[in-house]
Design a protein around this nucleic acid. Sequence first.
DNA 1: AATTTATTGTTAATTTTTTCACATTAGTGA
DNA 2: TCACTAATGTGAAAAAATTAACAATAAATT
Lengths: 206, 206
Amino acid sequence: MNTKLPPRTVERLSKYRRLLDKYKDLEEAHIYSHKLAALLNLTPEQVRRDLMLIGLTGNHRKGYNIKALIGQIGTTIDRQEGHRVALVGIGNLGKAVLGFIRKANTKMDIVAAFDIDRNKVNTQVAGVACYDIGAAAQIISREQIRIAILTVPPEAAVNTATLLLESGIRGILNFTSVHLDVPPGIYLKDYDIITSLEEIGFFIMD
Amino acid sequence: MNTKLPPRTVERLSKYRRLLDKYKDLEEAHIYSHKLAALLNLTPEQVRRDLMLIGLTGNHRKGYNIKALIGQIGTTIDRQEGHRVALVGIGNLGKAVLGFIRKANTKMDIVAAFDIDRNKVNTQVAGVACYDIGAAAQIISREQIRIAILTVPPEAAVNTATLLLESGIRGILNFTSVHLDVPPGIYLKDYDIITSLEEIGFFIMD
DNA sequence: AATTTATTGTTAATTTTTTCACATTAGTGA
DNA sequence: TCACTAATGTGAAAAAATTAACAATAAATT
């Protein structure tokens, strides 16, 4: 588990696996770098380099063994015991995230969800126990949760994030479009829909 | 409107504006590159270079004028007439996207939504007219929509995307985690929640 | 068994992006 | 008015990421 992999490579490895997961029981046992590249709008060189970086070696004639590839990506980017994740904010976006993860066959397990809505607290949402945000510190600690997905309304973002960090969260996927100030050692990843859209707007030619 | 801006710069410009939009009527009239950098986890040099690239010039003593900054980013990355956008797939994620855009004060206007659910078709969802996906070609052409946000279930992704492209869509923001094959000239941007999570999982230290 | 072919593995070159370093400069205050 | 301070603006250097190029090679073919 080499922490020196470039972030872009880690992202692509995750994508290779997710794509090939669909292929693994069907079709061919092997795949060429150029095929994989075409399926993900990358170059074959990039694919080969990524696989080289995780010490995976292909067959000069048949390409890469799909199961070996999935396995090697797993031993590289997964933690053996998986990751225990909290979903914080069970609105439309939160529910959508639950749906994605449930289908995805990943080592990321959502083991608790938090909200302030009394109608949601103490129920199950898509099979996940939902707690009041006030219980977050206790549950996160008890359940040893290290990653949080933040899908609360923007006005709640900063306070909620502070609470999460105090509770032992080490990584946050922040969908709130609010800037979060996190101390060193915490891995924060922001995603902002508007930014993505505006980028598309700029680059489409008219 | 210089099409030669690096994609990263365009992303950051969008973020500067979104952040400063909140500041523009309050507080100071100016902001320093180091302040802006701190607010977005960037370096001051990066901020200054980005602003330099769009021809914006600051005051050596006061920093950058916030309104001028917002204005200049707008003339650089916005199309004057705005962008007409379709939301395709009105599930949880689709509704969440609607919410974000409604709040965001952006030039991206969602002017139509599509679904196959009879309960949604011919209603308004968050103020947006909802049509049957079968009417997409007609509506997209009539409304001159150029950008689509794809939030349909994965099994519908490829066919829906094909339909969109045939209808004149030039840019797609794809949330389906399904690979889309698009011809040159079409700007495709993928976002995959699982990939983001797995990246966090890899980089948090334990 | 030798030849051909198409692919991998990897070094080198290139391009892109970020950071450094510092001259320039607008305002401050002695 | 004249230094002083704390910014900006930007060329140059460095780092990161991608792409090109091609030797090595595994299988298929003759």
